[in-house]
Structure formats: C-alpha cells, structure tokens
Write a protein that binds this DNA or RNA. Sequence first.
DNA 1: GGCTTGTGCGGGAACGTTCCCGCAACAATA
DNA 2: TATTGTTGCGGGAACGTTCCCGCACAAGCC
Lengths: 326, 326
Amino acid sequence: MAREAGLSKTTVSAALNGTGRLSPAVREKARETARRMGYRPNATARQLRAGRARLIGYVVGEFAGAPWTFLESPYFAQLTSATAAAALKRGYALVMLPAGELHGEWADLPLDAVIVADPVADDRIVEDLLAARIPVFTDRSVEGRPGAHWVDVDAAAAVCETLDHLKAQGARRPALVLPDSTTRFHVGVLAAYREWCAAQGLPEQVVLAATAGNGPVVRAVEDALTGADRPDALLVVAEVSPPLVLEVARRNGYDVPDDLLLVCVSEDTTAVHTQPPVTTLSLGPREVAEAGIELLVAALEQGHAGPAGVLVPTRLQVRASSLRTS
Amino acid sequence: MAREAGLSKTTVSAALNGTGRLSPAVREKARETARRMGYRPNATARQLRAGRARLIGYVVGEFAGAPWTFLESPYFAQLTSATAAAALKRGYALVMLPAGELHGEWADLPLDAVIVADPVADDRIVEDLLAARIPVFTDRSVEGRPGAHWVDVDAAAAVCETLDHLKAQGARRPALVLPDSTTRFHVGVLAAYREWCAAQGLPEQVVLAATAGNGPVVRAVEDALTGADRPDALLVVAEVSPPLVLEVARRNGYDVPDDLLLVCVSEDTTAVHTQPPVTTLSLGPREVAEAGIELLVAALEQGHAGPAGVLVPTRLQVRASSLRTS
DNA sequence: GGCTTGTGCGGGAACGTTCCCGCAACAATA
DNA sequence: TATTGTTGCGGGAACGTTCCCGCACAAGCC
C-alpha cells in the first residue's frame, strides 16, 4: 500500500482505478508514487473483493488415458490456443488441467468455469464439476447433461457436403476411415455416411482405426486401400498427417487424384505443402472456441441469457487431391 | 461457511484441512456437513491468506508476431503440455498468455512466476516482468538477463553428435537447413556446424529458411537439394513435417537413404510412420519442461537455492533414413 | 450569516480464509 | 483439595482490496 504517498488506501485505490472523486493533483501523485516504488495492487485481494477470479479451467476429456498428449493433435492445438485467445480478449485467463480422476488438484484453483473439450461418454468429469457448482462448457455435446452448455458441428451436413463433392468429381466407391469411438461426432459421421450411400445407391466401405493416433489410422488407411474392392475415393475422418496418407496411397500403387480422390478431416497445415495439396474438411476449431467462449462469458456475466448450445459450420477446403484432372 | 454444522469457522477450517486438535467426531461432522451442502472453501481467500496463488504464467516469445500459433509446432506442443504437467504435479497451475505488448491483461492475474519459452533477443517481455518483480524463467538462455533463470540444450554437442553419425554412415557433403533467426540455439547450431566441417575438412553448405513454418522450410530444403553440388546428407534444424521433407527429396530424384541421409530436428511423431522412418534429433522438450519447473519451484519455495541455469541433453533417434543400406 | 449543495478525501467494514492465542473442561499429579 | 498439564474448541485479527458512507470545507442562494 502506497501510504508512502501520504494518502489513504482508499484514495490510492480510487486513484489507480480511475474511480472516485479525486483532484487531478492527488490522483497523479498517487500514480506517480506507485510507479516510482513499483507498486502493483494485489491481484488475489481484488479477486476476493470481486467475487470471481476471471479464471477458466480447460480440460480435454478424450485423452483421459494419456492426459497430456492432446496438444500434439493439430485440432486440439488450434482449439486450445483459440480458446485461450478468445478468453483473454474478454478478460479471462485459461488454466490447462489434466483429464483423469485427480480433480483434487483443481480444488485450490478459483475457477469461474471449466471447459471440457470433447468429453467422452463414460467419464465423470462433467458430473463432478456440476456437482461442485462449477459451470461447465463443452465442445461436442453430450447427451443427458442438462446443466452443461455446448458447442458442436453439424457432422451430417459436413459429411454430405464432402461426399457430394467427391461424387461430383467422379467418385463411385468412396471409402470411409473412422476411429472406433463412441464420440457423438464420430457416430454422427458414420450414420451420415451410411445414409448418403443408401440414398445414392452406392456401396459403402468403412474401415475402423483401432484407436486415435497416426499409427493406427495409417494402418486403417492401408487396409481400406488394399481391400478387395479398390475404392476410388477416400474420406479420412481421423487425425492423421495428410502427407502420411498420401505416402501410403502411393506405396500401394494409387495416383492421387487420378486413381484416388482424397479428403482428410484435418487442421494440419502440412496439407497445403504436399504435391498434390490435400483437400481437408476443417471442423473449425477456432470458430468453435470463439463461439464457446462467447457463450461462456454471456452465461457467466449475464446469468443464463442466451442459448444452451451453438452449432458451428465446417469448412471444406478443396485442393488438388480431390479434383479430377480430366 | 458451514456454521450450518453448529461449529465455528475455525473448527470447520481445521476439520477440512486435517489440522488442529479436534475430536474425530467433530471433524467427521464438519466434513459430512460440507459434503452434504456441497461446500468448498473459497480458493481465492486461501490464496490471499497464503500469500501466493500457485499460478504460473506461460508465454512463448518467439511467436510474438502471431501470438497464438506456437502450439501448432510439435516442439512447443510438447513443451507446453509437459510444463503444465510438471507444474501441476508440484501443485502449480499453468496459465497460457499471449506474447506481445498487451501485458496489461496479465496485471489482474496473481502470477507467482512467468515462464517465457524461447524469448527472442529484442522483445521486452523479460525486462518488463523483472521490473514488476515477477520471477522469470526461460528455456533457451538469453544473454544479459541477470535476474532470470534458464534451461537450455547443448546445441554444439547435439550438432556434433549428429554430424559424426552422418559421417560414420558415409556422408561427405552434409548440408544444413536452418531458419534465419538470431535465437541463441540457431546461432549455436550454425557455429557448431561450421566448426565441425572445418575440423573434418569437409565442405559446408548452408541454406537459410526465410522464416519458420512448413512452407519456407520446405522451400529451403528444395533449394539445398537442387543446388549445384548435390549433398549426400541433410540436417534440417527447423520445425518441419518429416514426411514433407521426404516427399521433397523424392520429388527431386533422391532416394532416402541411398542417395541422401536425412536427419530432422523434430518432435513430430509422424517421423516413425514414414517409409523409411526418419531419424530425428529431439531437443527433449519434456526434459526441458521438467528441469525448468523443478528450477522454478525450488527458487519459489526455497528462495534462491540452486543454480541459475540447467543444461539438458538432446536425443538422437536413429532410424532408417540415416542408415546406409550398404 | 444561516442554509443547502457539491467537492475531496478518509475511516470502517466486508470478502472468506488461516493463524495465534485464550478459555473452558477434564485428567494427572502432589 | 490445590496445582499443573492436556485436550477440544472458538474468538479475534490479519491478508489487501473495494464499497459505502460520513465528515470537513468551499461555494452558491436567500
């Protein structure tokens, strides 16, 4: 406290905050003294007075088994950084937390809310937080969580748009590679694919990757390409490095795009630098983050005004890998 | 406060913290009541009492121009997550902050310390923080910052180990691709490369990438490979996707490893899944993070015991791309 | 000059904890 | 029984801020 300046704590507080009725002389004197002695108001005390800490927790649910690997996925890297950016723009800071059962470690943090990215159906993070009266926000909605807000993408629309594009480019046997997951998004993708194939009268060919990660997905791609009926298009709905997929295709005698039209669901920027560049379906992590933070801040500051959920559009980035050369 | 339980605040506090002299009956009663009404002690108030918030800020300096893109680099993704994990293990939480001049946004955060990852020579983050009496920790040391602690890798040793390996595999014209950066690490790498070439009597060939990022680095690799004297080995000391480098090499008529031994400085896990798998030099972000947090916590909790800096070893992961098939 | 209105600043309380100490009640000892 | 020690709990202060209000003084009005 700058009682150094010969002023009261009240006056100093008002001077630094620009509030209260103070003469310009006194205000400047307080500020000057603070500057001189490097005084900065104690953030914790302000939080205590204010009743909130402007701190948001951030957990990724899908990787509960390997709590700290999610950032290696370009989707989560972008989602995370965009969330932090959007939050900070509105005056909130993001705290990175591990998934898993060690919720005790968060108890010492004054979190105003927690964002659970991609919660899986069977873990208890969301329930635990709601029980502790901490507001919860998720991307990817989870059924049966009445108290939670969510942001999601329209999986069916995205799949249909992509498959329509592939068909327009001449695909008649488009295959789908998908992780073996119960996430709402993946379930939605599979359903949409089947429905589309049925509606178009085209054969369906689905290969499931055992788990997420480059290794299993690459193997699944290889399986899809070496199967009995060679597909003429491939839609990979799993985090995998696009150049890696391209390499696998080449290794197995495919020429992209002449023998195989390729689309990857990916945020990986390497897709632009391959030859040919790979068409990607972006799930818009930056948009998801922006919408989620907007929802969160609205709920936090204006009570429960606004919707419980928001749907965000996807973006199909068409590049040479899915364009017939004809 | 659980005066609901018919107890005093003091007693409740002691009961929940496991401190004080309380009869088991009273202690259990307090805990039971807290559980029943979902009471959790206010974290902000505890911080105020304790005098610290157990909160650590985290900034990446190198990307001040594009504040939120660093997570797309596997190195920083791993460094960030490992830092968060190590910090949390010791009871500290990590807050992600943007680089740039908007330090005002952090003023409201009760940060016990700030980690500045890869500070660039010419920005003022470190000075600003030290002026605000906030302890600063950096990976990659910066000269002339007496108050700051640091963790670094031995660039010279890493380069020599790698070049020795390449020479042992038959390389006589090893080229170096490097970003055009003044970072201490890159400067050290270049110096070590030149020294090694001179000592071995081998010609040096250096190509600088205009900036970081896959695009510029890929172009630099292409330049190196299409230059007048075809190199027989390539050391890429820049964040770039290994499969992309492999593709560029193939496109330019190189067979890896027969025509070209390839080593990438990279943490990218795709290196394992290419054919051939790519040899990588890991800068050990997880080790850097662990060492940095250990240093930080020691300094924070025991005053200034311990060293100001720590050197962390690198790891050369030899794979088929740098092994002569003979 | 008395009365009201406005300005400039400070005192006290409160935010929710934890720490220090004091005060009962009871047991052990003389 | 008087003295000392121990156990079990609560009262009060303090952490550093901000908000509410009150007080002194000056200026305007009749």
